[in-house]
């Protein structure tokens, strides 16, 4: 039952999780590598927030592109 709930959650929210973790990590790394936002402490919040937002939009639209 628990495993079923986990699978349901993954299949419903996979785009948001992917956006938050995968895209968030990539955006954060790119911003830091090219020093695009200086030494702002909010860089992680911005990067992971942007990733999660992209994932959320993809979830609503049903597709990434």
């Amino acid at each position: 039952m628990i495993i079923e709930k986990i699978f349901d959650h993954i299949s419903n929210w996979k785009k948001v999780w992917f956006g938050l973790i995968f895209l968030g990590s990539i955006i954060s790394a790119v911003l830091q590598k090219f020093n695009l936002v200086g030494d702002s402490h909010y860089i992680l919040v911005f990067a992971f927030g942007a990733g999660a937002l992209i994932g959320f939009v993809a979830k609503i639209r049903g597709v990434w592109l």
């Binding site: 999780w17 992917f18 973790i21 995968f22 990590s25 990539i26 954060s28 790394a29 790119v30 590598k33």
Partner: peptide
Amino acid sequence: TLLVLVIIFPLETL
């Protein structure tokens, strides 16, 4: 694995 790797090595995983 992909999500763990991207946290540790983001650009390499990409």
